[in-house]
Simulated scan of single mutants.
Amino acid sequence: MRIAIDAMGGDHAPQANVEGAIAAAREWTDTTVILVGDKDRLEPLISKDRPGNVEIRHASEVIEADDEPVKAVRRKKDASMVVAGRMVKDGEADAMISAGNTGALMTMGLLVVGRLKGIERPALAPMLPTMDGEGLLALDLGANMDATPEQLVQYAVMGSIYRSKVHGVDKPRVGLLNVGTEEMKGNELTKAAFPLLATAPIHFVGNVESRDVLRRPCDVLVCDGFSGNIMLKSMEGTASVLMSELKKQFMRSFITKLAALVVKNGMLQLRKKMDYAEHGAAPLLGINGLVLKSHGSSGGHAIKNAVRQARIAVAGGLLQSISTGIGGMTENSNGSEM
């Protein structure tokens, strides 16, 4: 198995990507990890005690965080992200991981790797934290701002297959993000999508309100990218403010500092539940190759976990399963029985 990492992507590149790649290579010796990026910058970071299953593929350019996605992908042909994508396209790598520019990664996936047959729009599918620690897969959370009812059904099928193949969830429960749980609640998109989801080859459990997401009312949450991204940013902002405020309150006096010591283990467990690094990366589902997006602030631990996810997806035949699932829907496109 060969997994490419965009070594120049992310806030802490290339150091964090190198650390994650080496840690992954040492744990999974049957996997070759390929660091794609500037060889002159990468070699000094891995020269000491380099595992035999770590390789470097030179790429002379970098897509920056503030680059315009389409222009960057088209003009920077030798950018580390683009080179890694070509490796997946050409079969030189079984999967690729990047913590770089999200818009550029989405564009690269479409222009370089290409869509799976039958998929109208790929979806970004990160794991959201839940209070039971299991997490919830949500899609789309920003790859596409708009969606049709039919595209939401495609998201649901892809997400359900991913949860089953990668996370081992038996018969994943699929919910539709909405403003109420009743069937006829919502806007025109959700009203039209509900009956289609109800007849799709998934375990559809109905509408889900955003206030319930942390309690894991479903295993897969489906939404358009605009609503999903607002929900995601709201959750991230709320969690950040709460943790900051708790820290401030615990530091107010000697007594509150003692109280902090008492609840320290519980707070650390809560923080771990909310940590994106534990999940590693979000797959870009609907692309004709395994492309995973790590958080821009990913450290070595998150990159290593992304490699773990990629390994499971490759071994489980995720792409073929999604292709088969979408193909079955296409054959029954009349909607009477998906």
Rank of each mutant, 00 (worst) to 15 (best):
Q309K: 14
I63D: 04
I230L: 15
S160N: 12
D224T: 01
W28T: 00
G266E: 02
L221G: 05
R75S: 15
G300T: 02
L270P: 12
A95D: 09
V73Y: 04
M108D: 01
A193V: 11
D219A: 05
M1Q: 09
G142Q: 07
L318S: 10
L258H: 10
E27N: 11
K264H: 13
E19K: 04
Q249F: 08
T32K: 15
I34N: 07
M87R: 01
I5Y: 10
V222D: 06
P14Y: 00
S298M: 08
M96L: 11
D94F: 00
M158N: 09
V33R: 00
P126E: 05
K293D: 13
A93F: 02
L124F: 14
G135T: 03
S244Q: 14
G316W: 03
A13I: 00
N207P: 13
R75Q: 15
L139M: 11
N101Q: 01
P129A: 11
G186R: 03
T181I: 10
V113K: 15
A198H: 05
A4D: 06
L124K: 06
T190P: 14
T102S: 14
R121D: 13
A282W: 02
Q309T: 10
Q309L: 15
D132S: 06
E61K: 02
G135N: 10
H12M: 10
L270W: 07
V70D: 02
P172Q: 05
D6C: 08
I119Q: 09
N265M: 04
K191Q: 15
K257N: 14
A24R: 09
I326Q: 08
M106K: 03
T107Q: 06
A315G: 11
S294K: 10
G118W: 00
R308H: 12
L128N: 04
